[in-house]
Design a protein around this nucleic acid. Sequence first.
DNA 1: TGATTTTTAGAGTAATTACTCTAGAGGTCA
DNA 2: TGACCTCTAGAGTAATTACTCTAAAAATCA
Lengths: 230, 230
Amino acid sequence: MTDTKTRILDTALALFNRFGERNVTTNHIAGELGISPGNLYYHYRNKAAIVSALFDRYQAHLLTLLTVPAGPLTWEDKMRYFEGILESMWEGRFLHRDLAHFLHQDPALRERYKRFVEDSLARGLEIYRRLRDSGLIEASDEELRALLVNTWVLAASWSGFTHGLNPDIADDETLDRRLLRQGIYQIICLEAPFLRGEALRHLDAMKREYRIDENALDRLFGADGLVHPE
Amino acid sequence: MTDTKTRILDTALALFNRFGERNVTTNHIAGELGISPGNLYYHYRNKAAIVSALFDRYQAHLLTLLTVPAGPLTWEDKMRYFEGILESMWEGRFLHRDLAHFLHQDPALRERYKRFVEDSLARGLEIYRRLRDSGLIEASDEELRALLVNTWVLAASWSGFTHGLNPDIADDETLDRRLLRQGIYQIICLEAPFLRGEALRHLDAMKREYRIDENALDRLFGADGLVHPE
DNA sequence: TGATTTTTAGAGTAATTACTCTAGAGGTCA
DNA sequence: TGACCTCTAGAGTAATTACTCTAAAAATCA
């Protein structure tokens, strides 16, 4: 059995992602775990400390994934990157969803978050440059920077977007996975215009792999959007 | 003097955008207005009703802006569209920031929001098709749909992103405007690869117009990102 | 003017919820 | 065994805050 401290984090993360941090009380977390509130507060001095610890885990994990690799990059490396990073961001989606509040109430977190974003974007830029060196991407540094910011915002906000359209998502593990994959599709489309070589050759296959044909997104555009498929 | 009902909405909107809905109590709103809490509750039966009314205003305004125009479209029309829409979304940024919570606590709003997004995207698609007909854009329907979703998510999340990096933004009206413009720049970059004709010819000018040279975003990428400008 | 309706004030309440405090169980080491 | 430390329980508290209620002022109308 893992220790209580870790179990509190795991349970809190699951509940936060599912119901939103605002709707999950400390008593709720303790209850779900079958421990007393006092016990919970023995391990974390307050609710914000739990959020803070979760953020640390999240940040450490993501920065590990964003380590610039050694050898030359293939398009498969690139896809692995994407999938890992987006999955990891999806896992910490409650953080992005209520980010404003967390940063508002915790100045220390504010600073850490800022550095975290800067770090992530800097590493991302490095990786993109490597992809350019490998001939998989063609773009100026300015274009890369804009692309990166857009990718970051999209990845961070994707869960919020899908959650808004489908609030019951939390109850459906399968749908959850599908929407994550659709998010990857959206990001593929984001950088599609810049792909070259092998990456470009596999673009259609990748799009097909991640797009969901009969999903909520298609219905978004109404009948008109479906009547004239590409 | 506008009536109390409208003044409540205006004040609430300003406070919500500035401090986040979560941090603004009904007493706070009443206090800011110089009226009593009871008065406020005479006009709106609860806090959610205020949010709901603000959402109605927001939605109506945005859908008006998204009306498909009559004649053929020029690249200047396009820019006007962008600026109007993004400014309007910026004006209702608190809604997007705490969207998950609002939808969680108000099932009716949930439905309205869903229809609103569907409507907006459908109209957006129509407009993009018109731009394609006018020779300003070249993209398949599939690409347009992905582009639209990305644009929507980015526009809706942009304020959250900048707010996270710069929480003091609310106190600085000028910085506020600059970040909004930077958001427009990001969206221009999003669709840049699909531009043709006149739109393409003015792309660089538009980028220059909206990008902020010495801003927080540049610093995001650290020294390395600045050492090798495009 | 008087009657009726709309609007306002502001004290007060009920419920939520983050958090505290005391006491004790369970393990470890001498 | 006994001393000590880690961990746990759970009742209780303090503070916040959305919201209510009564009554009176202001406006409208006959």
